[in-house]
Computed example of a mutant assay.
Amino acid sequence: MERAGTILRGRELEPVEGRVVIDDDGRIDRIEETSVESDDLVVPAFVNAHTHVGDSIAKEAGGGLSLEELVAPPDGLKHRLLRETSREELVGAMRRSLRYMLEGGTAACLDFREGGVVGVRALREAARGLDVEALAFARGSIDAMKEGDGFGASGANDDSFDRERTATREAGKPFGIHAGEVDASDINPALDLDPDFLVHVVHPEPIHLDRIEDRGVPVVVCPRSNLVTDVGVSPVEELTARTTVALGTDNVMLNSPSMFREMATLSKLSDLSAREVLRMATVNGAEIVGLEYGVVEPGAEARLVVLDGDSNNLSGAIDPVRAVVRRAGVADVREVVVPA
């Protein structure tokens, strides 16, 4: 199998004309640089590094509420609505969001999964048969973590999470935690847990940036969500200078789970290059949890997005990387390629 067009190759996302050749095991065998007739853009599939897909039952609920009123456990609006929702409704709503992500070129999402073991199983059911990896970073119990793919802690001001961190380490699974979303008070306690990644880090102080760099702790930023909840925007330029930074869309209640929209927003809010933003949306998120894709290079798993470079939106684009990051959308996706 092969796909042809302008290929954004390797971590540097170098545009080359040619073909991506995929072997029978679903991995990229080689990239052939050659003249082709296709106007398509062949790019790595996205990894949405932070989601709350359960919020799909409450899209655009809670306008004007504070972050605490919206999402704080146990009585924030989302938690009340989740308690009132049947399993059938929850699974159906999550499945529709996962389908939308796949249509928009997302190969995987790292979902902070409410509801304990039952919540993890609901996500598994929602993702069944879909070509998107919905990784459950369980919340609520150690048993839920064992059922899922890791543990996703709400924040170090909510609990100590020492037991959960120990159990996660013993299980050989990743541990992520929200930190620095509202203020800086929970960043040091979160770092004391030696997490595999932090989420948000909107309000780091110099000591926190130093600790993040010294320990090489990756950070997932969610700019659209932080804008909606009015907590500020992560200092992405400082963070990317110090550690691996990935991109997530956060609560489906607040934003559509579109990596195109997230990239465009971040690109226009920051001084980061389009290449850096695209890496944040692809290979950086993949590397946080050891996924073998997110980059178009030999040996990588072939999870690709093929964009119609001759669409009304993309036709005439001079810089293909900037076009993908700042201009492209779900309507431009011709195909999402996943291993058989």
Rank of each mutant, 00 (worst) to 15 (best):
R30M: 02
L8V: 08
R11K: 13
R30Y: 02
E12K: 02
R19G: 10
V20G: 12
D25P: 01
E33H: 01
E32S: 02
I28K: 06
T6W: 04
R3Y: 11
E33L: 03
D24I: 04
I31S: 04
T6Q: 02
R27V: 12
L13I: 05
D29I: 03
D24G: 09
R3W: 13
T6P: 02
G10A: 08
A4D: 07
I22Q: 08
A4L: 01
P15A: 00
G5I: 06
E17Y: 00
A4E: 15
R11S: 14
G18E: 08
D23T: 13
R9A: 15
R11T: 13
P15E: 00
V20N: 10
I22K: 06
G18K: 01
E14D: 12
T6V: 15
G18I: 06
L8S: 11
E14C: 06
V21Q: 10
V16I: 14
G5S: 06
T6R: 10
V20E: 10
D25Y: 06
P15Y: 00
D24S: 14
R19Y: 03
A4R: 11
R9M: 12
V16D: 03
D23V: 05
D24K: 09
V20T: 07
L8I: 07
I28Q: 07
P15W: 00
T34M: 09
R3S: 06
R11C: 10
R30P: 09
G26N: 04
E32Q: 08
G5Y: 06
L13R: 08
E17Q: 13
G5H: 05
V16K: 01
E14I: 04
G26W: 11
D23E: 12
R27C: 09
V16Q: 01
P15S: 00
